[in-house]
Write a protein that binds this DNA or RNA. Sequence first.
DNA 1: CGACTGACAGATATTGACATTTGTCAGCGG
DNA 2: CCGCTGACAAATGTCAATATCTGTCAGTCG
Lengths: 196, 196
Amino acid sequence: MNTEPLTSEAILDAAEAALRRFGPAKTSVVDVARALEVSHGSVYRHFPSKAALREAVTARWLERVSAPLEDVVTRPGPASRRLRDWVALLAATKQAIARDEPELFETFHQIATGSRDVAAAHVDHLADQAARIVADGIAAGEFTDGDPAVLGRAVLHATARFHHPALSREWGDPATTAADLDAVLTLILHGLTRPE
Amino acid sequence: MNTEPLTSEAILDAAEAALRRFGPAKTSVVDVARALEVSHGSVYRHFPSKAALREAVTARWLERVSAPLEDVVTRPGPASRRLRDWVALLAATKQAIARDEPELFETFHQIATGSRDVAAAHVDHLADQAARIVADGIAAGEFTDGDPAVLGRAVLHATARFHHPALSREWGDPATTAADLDAVLTLILHGLTRPE
DNA sequence: CGACTGACAGATATTGACATTTGTCAGCGG
DNA sequence: CCGCTGACAAATGTCAATATCTGTCAGTCG
């Protein structure tokens, strides 16, 4: 048969492919093992449970979501522009996946609501990225003073409607959604209160 | 038997009581009719379907949510204070119901996701209330210029995490949640950009 | 020896016969 | 007449028998 050794990476690839094809409800560990032409017992040598396997798939997938965002965080330019682009990219990415890969998106959402750890780590990661842009803006004198950690978290919360999976049903027409997000971003950047 | 005529209001009362007692999944039209000591056929003379009946219950219940908010909209005082209180009251009301009346809350959420009309009307109503406070603030020179309708909607969207039923799972500790909402409200009212 | 298998027990999901519910309507009674 | 009833068909829900799946582990193979 196959002389290649079975790796965790190969299992993750097969698991992701199976989740894409069958969806979270219809994907069994046996399905994944069958695709790799091994017994399902072998899969359990690499992952302690089905839940752990699905979490690993989700973690890897979330990493692929946040990696391109990192570029926006570290690139040069005004913080206000980068914060706008960062949120817009985050929202566009999540919305595109919800539209084009509903199976994987549902898996992610299920795990995010089920086991808190993976989701919480992702949220912390995003909040940190936002906080770093805010910190840059404060350092450059572009933004008003404040705790970057608190402000980054607030930016993420204020834009939750446009990137939180639980609200994917609200994402109707992309143009309207983009306009609504733009209004919220303008509100965050300018604020309501008139400067003295 | 009972000589009183059967009214839509009486049916709504009975339906709400039944939903509270049995929950949305276990409440049948027959249950509602039995409580009123009529046949279930009579209920269908007042509401064309079970879905319509549940929507009517939800609409009446949503009205009871937004009525107290109206007081905050029309009362005197600075717009910034009223906007803060309005959002805080909206969030606190939704969160209290999610905690204390999970049955009714689940019914509402189910209908909100299922049939768009009732939910959309409620969202429009709330956006309008926010817009009126914003309009007051602009008229008083307290807020910067802008379209109140757009800004009211943006305020509702930016605070969705704290009152949208789909995100009720995120409402963990009330103190932390209140602090997070406070950070978002401060962000909205002050904005990030430093005034020149 | 270490990676893998395959049989196994307990947990979970599927199926299909059965019961309840939704929604309609002809007709009863005030 | 008008509001209500109750019998009914179709849709939906329930439940127990059955099948599949998860997770374990003693044993096989290279």
